[in-house]
């Protein structure tokens, strides 16, 4: 049989199949990126539990949002763009102000000291869950010191208290949560770059080398954003 030259394959039907598949995917999928701000809610308070002990005013960073989406931070109106700097100031108290928490210096000596005392107490009452928890906390601090060196930390009861009105817009609420997180993350990133050469966001939870580093940075700058029990603030 004489060769007729290359026969052209009719590609028209291939295009039809491809179009069908394309339209199927266009219709059934979304380009929705699933990202968001992760939070942990506090467990529900049983109604008969007594009120938790009062925290010193200086150790609480009070953020109020009213139904007009206005911010009142520590008793003073503030613009949303200043909130990040405000949160950083609360965590680091660079000026030593008496309105902001007093940071305590954590050194290897104090940590070892405390651990020894706690371990001794544990050997005397080996079933105490409270002692075991305390030992865990101090062991985390020891890991932090080994990786970072001595550091200053917030008092254990210090927190950022966020209260919003029922009429606040969700957008404003997210902005506030975002700016507070942004402040903490900026502190964490700076520390991580200084000590490990990588920003905190670059550390991976699946890498075993990074896990103690992540723990150490979280020990220095814990994320303590607490939302008060909801109530009506009105247009405060």
């Amino acid at each position: 049989m004489a060769r007729r030259g290359l026969q052209e394959i009719n590609a028209g039907s291939m295009a039809d199949i491809a179009f069908l598949l394309l339209i199927f995917f266009l219709v059934t999928t979304t380009m929705d990126q699933d990202i968001g701000i992760l939070r942990q809610l506090p467990p529900p308070i049983p109604p008969d539990m007594e009120k938790p002990p009062e925290v010193k005013q200086r150790n609480v960073y009070e953020v109020l949002v009213n139904s007009n989406d206005q911010l009142l931070v520590e008793g003073r109106p503030m613009d949303i763009r200043e909130l990040k700097a405000g949160a950083i100031e609360f965590y680091t108290n660079p000026s030593g102000s008496p309105d902001l928490p007093q940071l305590t210096r954590v050194t290897r000596a104090t940590v070892q000291d405390n651990l020894n005392k706690l371990r001794q107490a544990l050997s005397e009452s080996p079933d105490s869950e409270e002692l075991k928890d305390k030992i865990d906390t101090w062991e985390d601090k020891l890991i932090a010191i080994e990786l970072i060196g001595d550091y200053s930390e917030l008092p254990g009861s210090a927190l950022i208290s966020l209260q919003n009105d029922r009429g606040t817009s969700y957008e404003m609420y997210i902005k506030v949560q975002n700016e507070l997180s942004a402040g903490i993350n900026e502190l964490r990133n700076t520390l991580s770059e200084e000590k490990f050469g990588v920003p905190y966001s670059g550390l991976s939870t699946s890498d075993d080398n990074d896990k103690p580093k992540i723990k150490a940075i979280r020990a220095v700058y814990p994320q303590r954003i607490s939302e008060a029990e909801p109530k009506d603030l009105g247009g405060s």
Binding site: I35, I37, R39, P43
Partner: peptide, 10 residues
């Protein structure tokens, strides 16, 4: 007791 939440954002 569903305490882990995520606020979906762009």
């Amino acid at each position: 007791n569903a305490l882990k939440i995520n606020y979906s954002v762009n």
